[in-house]
Write a protein that binds this DNA or RNA. Structure first.
Lengths: 152, 152
DNA sequence: ATGCATGAGTTCGTCTTCCAAATCCAGCCT
DNA sequence: AGGCTGGATTTGGAAGACGAACTCATGCAT
């Protein structure tokens, strides 16, 4: 069990985790990102999948564009007029491992009875895949062996 | 770039990611968990570190106990009265890799100029550590090689 | 041209949640 | 008794969430 502390080693203002939480740590934002990572791009597709109130959705999409997680582009299908679509940027796509890790946490701790509806495998070996900590050259480090290092 | 889809392969109701978001996907909840993972346990310590309104904090702590992420225990220091403390359960502790992954996302995408204030190393080799996907036996799989598998 | 369909929003009134400050409460101290 | 301390609830006002209806632009059919 982690030892008692009265104060975090990094204040929330300087902490990149806290900053990340301020940027994306909100129910609708996270659900929108989830759908976006599954390939959704259009306003009404997000709306009908998630049931987000349209007014909220429009605001959240705007801030996701402002923070650079989504990019607003125009698409045009033959015979229809041009409409916006919201596609993940590199920054947004970089959240995929985080959200997969959270999915796997949910698989274990929220629904351990049934088999998870989605899982992830290596395209090549077809083995199933989990998130873990690795060194620079890719050797796994068990999480008990992690040590926090503060920059002086 | 991920191909357009009009609908996620798993509906939000069945999705463990969406469920996880419903359980912890809220600003204060995530910030409380961050502090808890750094060892904070006491009401006033959370309150003064995060500035959470006391009324909100008390509600969030209660639901974190209800969902089994924190456990409410009593502690007693000599000469003071017994007080509650909120310690991470195994389920809560299991979120650590997820939040470390999010921290590292923040290091790269929110604050790439300065060096991150905290980093993580392997206790043994002292090498720095990142999150990645690995197979069962711990071989790293690059994220481009991931494939989603739906359970039939 | 007129009318209709479509997708992406906005407007509006209501209702919930958030918030800060003050207050309460229990137990331990002198 | 009286004061202190840390955990928590009460209160009234502010902010944000919500659902329904409406707007707006464009392309298509008549």
């Amino acid at each position: 069990m982690i030892p008692l502390s009265r104060k975090s080693p990094v204040s929330p203002e300087r902490c990149n985790l806290a900053r990340a939480v301020n940027e994306i740590g909100d129910r609708w934002t996270l659900l929108i990102l989830r759908s976006a990572l599954y390939g959704l791009r259009r306003f009404d597709d997000f709306q009908s999948e998630l049931g987000t109130p349209r007014t909220i959705l429009s605001g959240r999409l705007r801030s996701l564009v402002e923070t650079g997680l989504l990019e607003k582009k125009m698409y045009k299908v033959e015979g229809k007029r041009a409409r916006p679509e919201y596609v993940l940027t590199e920054k947004g796509e970089a959240l995929r491992p985080v959200l997969i890790a959270l999915t796997q946490w949910g698989d274990v701790w929220l629904d351990s009875d049934s088999l998870p509806p989605v899982s992830f495998t290596d395209m090549q070996s077809r083995q199933s895949v989990r998130t873990a900590f690795v060194t620079a050259e890719g050797r796994e480090v068990p999480s008990e062996n992690l040590r926090i290092v503060l920059r002086r």
